[in-house]
Design a protein around this nucleic acid. Structure first.
Length: 921
RNA sequence: GCGGGUGUGGUGAAAUUGGUAGACACGCUAGACUUAGGAUCUAGUGCUUCACGGCAUGGGGGUUCGAGUCCCUCCACCCGCACCA
């Protein structure tokens, strides 16, 4: 009997489906393990071989943990809302719901081909009303809560109202606007609208005005990366900034907890750094500078208050509020011209050109509160209005950017760090002793930092201040294909929709045009929008990350109508133990889902405040392109080895009609009509293609569909080969040719059970010590590798194991049965088949993982490498019990050693028991 | 510029604690079986040398009896962030 993988795989996939083999219960005495993939966006393009890499890795882990006695949750679903589907609808008129269903269906069939152990009864789709009902519900939780800084947690908005009624907002600074201050009496005197406006400044989900990129010609709002140099990427139409009222999530209140939370979870250093970088916490101080002959003050933010005596000028962002009032008549024209220049530049340009130095003097001077010196006030685009206070104190001797600016505009530089400043470039040191710094002269900078901070606060001219780069997250999209907000506006004031009315269903539309004034398409559905006189629905929809911020919770309890997830169920499953996905979600999805988890935790809806205990980022699978060389102005193609003899043009050829590097010339002729009459100049009778490793992309004809690979080699081979390619986290190119090694391995495994002539050859005889040693070595290695996700080395070890058993002619049931259990996470179909061939009636999915026993692998001898001066010259097989003295004696008697000694006496002999021998001359 | 990562045969890679570098595969070479081979099996395969040997883990230096592994320094490539005060 041959290894007929097609029949085997079909048979067992059907069987597992019929028997609900992958159904997971929430009610179990076993320890739990939650293994999760980042769910896919079901695009129309389908999967290529790069996509399933992470899915295979988690599938192996899930199956492995199941064998090890865990109740394993391993679900899959779809991130089904999103822009491309809507774009497709605009172009084709096909409703996004229909496209989405179609795409999901084809995704599903591709996934099923590979034999994953997902519990599909838990499938979720973020676009399904029964799912987004709860996305809306959680949004209302965010809307109805505020961040209590004293308690460092979110609380229901009622606790804030209660506090306002007692003490106004004393001690509860307003995160939306620090200037807002009121007493209990003030609060009680406000009408409902005023009160709700105040509350809005505290809510975690809140409304504010923000700019969007509005493109009149396309009639749509564009994402930042769809705008290039102020023009739309598609069509090159002008794009203008338009202020619109939009929803935000107050993620900045959680900045500190998002930072400290990183220390409790296992993400890669790179990933943690990306998040830290994004959050961008900095410690510093705000310092108020008085302006000469002007009543206004400038508040600057600095991380280096210790350098305050080195301030040679102040720079305001060109958009700063004070610009108009401090510009002197003499400088008015120059300032106006500069501001016009800055406005003409797109954000992208302002960010791109780091080298050119621009700026303008306002004519006014500020007064350094520490030494009374007059300091010129400049404007420059390198200071951003949105960060800190939009004003900086420039210290040229310590900051390179300030230094360059001072040099460029001939501003004298004060040296406050003595020898540490060489006049050629700034020195941002924190370890110098201060000079030219009044009473602080001679003080180490770190000490001065404290002293000056204290002085700032004593003098009442400022305070210590922590700043974050991170901004609050925009949560509105002017689009159709997303979750509607459960919000209505009564006379312009936002109110929540009653929970009982959830979900607020997305109305069916057939025209996807943007609404008036940059609003989303929903604004056109007037019957849906206008509920009553003066009562309108919110017409924005939520962004893509809304549904994905909490989906891992819904899998636990996917059919619950009464709650997003029953607390008892989330207490059982808890955090995701292993989360695998691409690195591209580093600061989007992974930060937002951490935020949502923290809010739900604070409000008592779940019992943990980090969603993912361990995250692994799988590497990208690159494409390996194939090239053919056409002789110029002909239809003749020359093989790669001979191309230098001709004048040729390089052309991409579909990798699917190339075997390794050898082109199937007949398939090539059929590939495209232009090539039907192609002729070939061959080498050794073959047409050899050139190769190039690059991104996998349809355009480069180097995509490989997993369906085709599975068809040709089977799912088990495909799964193992993807893992065999290299470490999970590393990027590597796909090379279809290499798969044959893995396929041969499975055939070789099969031959341990079946002989071509003799048929089934498994014996019931007891295993020999050698056979047991091979088995137990494999158990040790493969169990360890599987736990560490080192699947490439595990696959190698399966190969070694089968090679060794073949050499030993081992066909013992006792051994082979255990090998199958080890193998089943990797190659589930063939393992199940052979498991039944051995006479087992139950599924191998429920087998017990073999237990490693040290006694079978104990060695009594070791082939020691013998080195002379560190270079290995020979080996000696010695009993492991031998001690240094005996080993040295034996070594000195060794022929090769004697030869290398050349009669000399060794200075020293190093013997590490069980490792090596080194003789030093 | 800052942060993170990676550099090992023709190719994908291995080496878990500083101890025989290149396991396991692909490819290639030769051979066996065969009507046939894109099946299977056997042997070989880092570079160099007739050989003894010498040289090899991006380059250079160091620590050590011994370094792919530790330290210093430089280079290349990849990823992320970027006038962030």
């Amino acid at each position: 009997m041959e290894y007929n993988f097609r029949a085997i795989e079909q048979k067992w996939q059907q069987h597992w489906k019929d028997t609900d083999a992958y159904k997971v219960s929430n009610d179990s005495n076993k320890p739990k393990c939650y293994v999760l993939d980042m769910f896919p966006y079901p695009s129309g393009a389908g999967l290529h071989v790069g996509h399933p890499l992470g899915y295979i890795a988690t599938d192996i882990y899930a199956r492995f943990k199941r064998l090890k006695g865990f109740n394993v949750l391993h679900p899959m679903g779809y991130d089904a809302f999103g822009l491309p589907t809507e774009q497709y609808a605009i172009e084709t008129g096909q409703h996004p719901a229909i496209t989405t269903d179609k795409n999901i269906e084809s995704f599903r069939s591709q996934l099923d081909n590979i034999g994953f152990c997902y519990d599909w009864s838990r499938e979720i789709r973020t676009s399904d009303p029964s799912y987004y009902k709860w996305t809306q519900w959680i949004f209302l939780q965010l809307f109805n809560s505020w961040y209590n800084r004293a308690a460092e947690k979110a609380e229901p908005i009622e606790s804030l109202i209660h506090a306002f009624e007692q003490n106004g907002n004393a001690g509860i600074p307003c995160p939306g606007d620090r200037a807002i201050q009121f007493s209990a009496a003030d609060w009680k005197a406000m009408d409902e609208v005023a009160q709700r406006n105040i509350l809005m400044e505290y809510r975690i989900a809140y409304l504010a005005f923000a700019e969007v990129n509005w493109c009149e010609a396309l009639g749509t709002v564009l994402a930042n990366d769809e705008v290039i140099n102020g023009l739309s990427e598609r069509g090159g139409y002008p794009v203008v900034k338009k202020k619109m009222r939009q929803w935000f999530l107050r993620i900045t209140e959680y900045a500190d907890r998002l930072l400290t939370g990183l220390e409790t979870i296992q993400f890669s250093d790179a990933m943690k750094d990306m998040q830290r970088n994004w959050i961008g916490k900095s410690q510093g101080a705000e310092i108020t500078f008085k302006i000469d002959q002007n009543d206004a003050n400038i508040v600057v933010y600095t991380t280096r208050p210790d350098t305050v005596f080195g301030v040679d000028f102040i720079v305001l962002a060109p958009e700063h509020d004070l610009v108009a009032s401090i510009t002197t008549p003499a400088q008015a024209d120059a300032v106006a011209a500069y501001i016009a220049y800055v406005q003409s530049r797109s954000e992208r340009e302002r960010m791109a050109e780091v080298k050119s130095i621009t700026g303008v003097f306002t004519g006014s001077y500020a007064i350094n509160p520490f030494n009374g010196q007059q300091i010129p006030i400049w404007l420059s685009e390198y200071v951003l209005a949105g960060y800190g206070t939009g004003a900086i104190m420039a210290v040229p001797c310590g900051d390179q950017r300030d230094f360059n600016f001072a040099k460029h505009f001939n501003i004298p530089i004060t040296n406050i760090i003595g020898d540490a400043f060489n006049g050629e470039e700034a020195n941002p040191t924190k370890d110098a002793n201060l000079t030219n710094s009044g009473e602080y002269t001679g003080m180490p900078m770190k000490k001065a930092m404290e002293a000056i901070n204290n002085s700032i606060e004593e003098k009442g001219i400022g305070k210590r201040q922590v700043n974050f780069k991170m901004r609050d997250a925009g949560f509105s999209r002017q689009r159709y294909w997303g979750e509607p907000f459960p919000i209505v506006f009564k006379n312009g004031v936002a109110y929540q929709v009653d929970e009982k009315e959830l979900p607020v269903e997305l109305p069916y539309i057939q025209d996807y045009k943007q609404g008036p004034e940059g609003e989303g398409p929903l604004a056109n559905v007037t019957a849906w929008v206008n509920l009553a006189e003066g009562v309108k629905r919110e017409t924005n929809t939520m962004p893509g990350y809304a549904g994905s911020s909490w989906y891992f919770l819904r899998y636990m309890d996917p059919h619950n109508d009464a709650a997003f997830c029953d607390r008892k169920v989330s207490d059982y499953w808890g955090q995701v133990d292993l989360y695998v996905g691409g690195t591209e979600h580093a600061v989007g999805h992974l930060l937002y889902s951490r935020l949502w988890t923290k809010v739900l935790y604070d409000l008592g809806h779940i019992g943990f405040d980090e969603p993912f205990k361990k995250l692994v980022n799988q590497g990208m699978i690159g494409g390996s392109s194939r090239l053919v060389y056409r002789v110029k102005e002909s239809n003749t193609f020359v093989s790669a080895g001979l191309k230098d003899q001709y004048d040729t043009t390089e052309l991409y050829v579909d990798v699917n009609i190339v075997d390794g590097v050898e082109l199937d010339t007949e398939a090539f002729k059929k590939w495209r009509s232009d090539y039907a009459t192609a002729e070939f100049i061959l080498e050794d009778g073959k047409y050899i293609c050139g190769t190039l490793t690059e991104k996998m992309s349809k355009r480069l004809f180097n995509t490989v569909n997993p369906d085709h690979v599975v068809e040709k080699y089977g799912a088990d081979t495909f799964r193992m080969y993807e893992m065999f390619l290299g470490p999970l986290e590393q990027s590597k190119p796909w090379e279809t040719k290499g798969i044959e090694g893995v396929h041969r391995f499975l055939k070789k495994l099969w031959r341990l059970f079946y002989d071509e002539q003799k048929g089934f050859i498994v014996e019931d005889k007891p295993a020999t010590p050698e056979e047991l040693k091979v088995l137990h070595r494999s158990i040790r290695k493969i169990e360890d590798d599987s736990e560490r996700l080192s699947y490439n080395t595990a696959v190698s070890n399966f190969m070694m194991c089968v090679n060794d058993l073949t050499d030993l002619k081992c066909h013992k049931k006792e051994i082979l049965e255990k090998v199958l259990v080890l193998l089943t996470p990797y190659a589930p179909h063939v393992s199940e088949e052979l498991w039944h061939q051995l006479g087992n009636t139950g599924s191998i999915l429920n087998a017990a993982y073999p237990v490693f026993e040290e006694k079978y692998v104990v060695e009594t001898t070791k082939e020691y490498p013998v080195s002379i001066n560190g270079k290995t010259r020979t080996t000696m097989v010695l009993d492991l019990s031998l001690e240094a003295a005996e080993v040295e004696k034996l070594a000195m008697e060794n022929e090769v050693v004697i030869k290398w000694l050349e009669g000399k006496t060794p200075k020293k002999i190093i013997f590490v028991k069980g490792k090596m021998i080194n003789i030093v001359l």
